[in-house]
């Protein structure tokens, strides 16, 4: 056991590289999915049926198929459409679209859950639609969508592991590589599980702390 641990020590640079790739991919995908999710939610909420229907179809397609299949479709099927991507950009795009579609549904529900009375009140005091959105709808919606959004973003962290399948050198891929060179599969995968576990619990904890602080602003409807 200690011998195995010493062997794993030799691979420290790869492991650190894996952690950096995983976290980098995750943060980038999270930011992109929030942007994509918000864009889809706004377009679907305020764009009329011409915008809503095709977007609804896209969201359904992504929510109705496994992430792994989407990754394969983009990475292996892309070149047939002239879209040849390296593993990391392909993984990032797939992850951001996937997360964006799930987040868009949450954001859309959040926009709809803002009481119409608040929007009307804002109109009555003479706010423009943009001002109403920025000062009333957005802050109220933010408090409501925080818990489910945190869940989805934590889910994205776990989904980065799937990208090892298209040879993105993230943490799971790095550990599998080490496992196949040293045959210390069980130990390395066990440690890998523990690291994901710790990371996810940490994020969940941060999310709960943010929720507690923001619950001050939760209105009673």
């Amino acid at each position: 056991m200690t011998g195995d641990l010493a062997i794993l020590g030799h691979y420290l640079p790869q492991l650190i590289g894996g952690v950096v790739t995983t976290i980098g991919l995750w943060v980038a995908a999270a930011i992109l999915s929030i942007v994509i999710g918000m864009a889809i939610a706004l377009a679907r909420s305020f764009g009329g049926p011409v915008v809503n229907l095709p977007l609804a179809l896209c969201v359904q397609l992504i929510r109705g198929t496994p992430f792994l299949v989407q990754v394969f479709l983009l990475y292996f099927g892309g070149p047939a459409l002239g879209l040849s991507l390296d593993p990391i950009p392909a993984g990032l795009i797939a992850l951001a679209l996937f997360g964006g579609c799930y987040l868009s549904e949450v954001f859309r529900a959040g926009i709809r859950a803002v009481p119409p009375g608040h929007v009307e009140a804002a109109a009555c005091v003479g706010m423009t639609r943009l001002q109403t959105f920025r000062r009333i709808v957005l802050p109220e919606m933010f408090v409501m969508v925080l818990p489910p959004s945190v869940n989805i973003i934590i889910g994205l962290l776990k989904d980065t592991a799937i990208l090892s399948v298209i040879s993105v050198p993230e943490l799971t891929g790095a550990v599998q590589q080490i496992g196949s060179e040293t045959f210390a599969f069980v130990l390395s995968l066990g440690l890998l599980s523990l690291s994901y576990w710790a990371l996810v619990e940490l994020c969940a904890h941060a999310g709960r702390a943010a929720e507690r602080r923001l619950s001050t602003f939760r209105f009673v409807s």
């Binding site: 776990k158 989904d159 592991a161 599969f185 599980s193 576990w197 996810v200």
Partner: peptide, 22 residues
């Protein structure tokens, strides 16, 4: 609950696949 929800399923699959024969 926390473990099985906190570890990516892919990692769980690889773990069980390698752990059980070990």
């Amino acid at each position: 609950v926390s473990f099985f929800r906190g570890v990516p399923l892919l990692v769980q699959l690889l773990l069980f696949y390698n752990l059980l024969p070990a």
